[in-house]
Nucleic acid binder design. Sequence first.
DNA 1: TCCCAGGCTCTCT
DNA 2: AGAGAGCATGGG
Length: 274
Amino acid sequence: MHVVFNEKDTILQGVAHLDVALSLDCGQAFRWKRCEDGAFQGVAMGKFLRITQKDDTVTLYNVSKEDYEAVWKVYFDLDRDYEKILSSYTDESLVKACRAFPGIRILKQDEWEAICSFIISANNNIPRIKGIIERLCECFGEKLENGYAFPSAEVISKLTVEDLAPIRSGFRAKYIIDAAQKLSSGEVDIEKIKHLPFSEAKAELLKIKGVGEKVAQCVLLYGFGRHEAFPVDVWVKRILSELYPEGFPEEYYETQGIAQQYLFHWRRSSAFCE
DNA sequence: TCCCAGGCTCTCT
DNA sequence: AGAGAGCATGGG
């Protein structure tokens, strides 16, 4: 991959294993919108981004070299060798899933945003998750030039369940507030979690109300970049019972979160029945 | 009207 | 330890 910085934009040429649309809209992040012209726009890491892709050329508009290096290169996981990872998958179903939707990358999202987003995801569907998060940002996030930042844990920690009524998150409101309070008080420490072994990191997240096994796995995968995390929702549960009744192959442990994302998207799509 | 959704908490065995 | 009810909301 070749990266070009012109006066305004950052352009990636010869990109391999990156499908921007698929990665931004496969159920791991909830704040991206597809524009009528096919571009994607959204806010992540406190910054607005407009991004387009044509074949193996990706353009990040109004992105400086500094922002690319510090933010978006990390967010899109561009330093990881997906060719190497995907080619290590020899399992028949997994190969099918990867071939059906090549280019999905595991986004490295903000840790707090991932915690909050996946608390909201509990017993919920993706369109409604997006709506709740959008209202959360519009009501309590900092206004940017384009859109709103994700509100900080500090801001949310001072709110009540009644304050959150406008976002219509239902029974999850009390969990959002509990998470914000535990994070802003330091009872749950993101910096500490980053350096803990997997099971201990998960145990820290489980201290938050509304965070159970599945949400914790999602947070570790999408917020902390822990690719050994393996979230099991209803779709992955179907995959496991249908295709891996003896359990998911252990040989893929280190990257099983990536495998899981391909399988999740494949099982939800019509391609699965073909 | 019913069922389902990237589940969790609480309670009862 | 494991099973089951209840939970807010809205789309199909």
